[in-house]
């Protein structure tokens, strides 16, 4: 565990909590892509199946349970409790265009052709693109609430910090995982455009709105 890894995890946790609180406090999930949230729930479910097979540390186990629990709670709030506020008309990204190729890739490029490993690989690949329905939704409506941009910022920073974690681990532990690294780079790149808007607009007190 190094500082990048820990702050990355905390940033990820902050993102998840920010989103849950935003929906809970405003009693509304307007502007949030339910499809992205379903994909994240699928990511955590397929990645953390090892909760049932191996124990790594109390930190590892509790964070996994919190992540997966919050992911399902978010999906529940969007599709059940506050369903009336869900903006389905703007959440039109075709997720099968992500899930099917990612599933195929997980079968073809993995560390070991076993069910758990393929599911883990699937989750890594899927996570890298799971935010696309949310970004698509923002590009369609042309704007995002400021709290939603804080969520996205924390979520993007998390994977960027993991990149530094992997550089650290490569140098100091001789450890690297090519699948995670490549997917992590892709994932971080997808946020670059958003990072630019966040820094130039939101941090200067303006609402994130895209030119028409």
């Amino acid at each position: 565990m190094n500082v990048f890894r820990l702050t990355g995890d905390l940033s990820h946790l902050a993102a998840i909590i920010i989103l849950l609180l935003k929906i809970w406090k405003s009693r509304s999930c307007a502007g949030i892509s339910g499809k992205s949230q379903i994909l994240f729930a699928l990511v955590f479910t397929t990645r953390y199946l090892d909760l049932l097979t191996s124990f790594i540390s109390l930190y590892n186990t509790s964070m996994k349970i919190i992540y997966v629990g919050c992911a399902y709670a978010t999906v529940y709030l969007i599709y059940a409790k506050f369903r009336a506020t869900y903006d389905g008309n703007h959440d039109t990204f075709r997720v099968e265009f992500l899930v099917v190729p990612v599933g195929g890739l997980a079968f073809l490029v993995n560390h070991d052709f076993s069910p758990l490993e393929i599911l883990w690989t699937f989750s890594i690949y899927l996570e890298s693109v799971a935010i696309l329905p949310q970004l698509f939704m923002i590009s369609k409506t042309g704007e995002a609430e400021t709290i939603t941009t804080h969520y996205l910022f924390c979520l993007g920073v998390y994977r960027a910090l993991y990149l530094f974690n992997w550089i650290w681990r490569f140098y100091f532990e001789g450890f690297f995982d090519m699948i995670a690294i490549v997917a992590g780079v892709v994932q971080t790149i997808l946020y670059c455009d958003f990072f630019y808007l966040y820094i130039t607009k939101v941090l200067k007190g303006k609402k994130l709105s895209l030119p028409a």
Partner: peptide, 10 residues
């Protein structure tokens, strides 16, 4: 260590 050895990351 072997690639993708132990999955201690989240």
């Amino acid at each position: 260590p072997e690639e993708g050895d132990e999955k201690d990351e989240l």
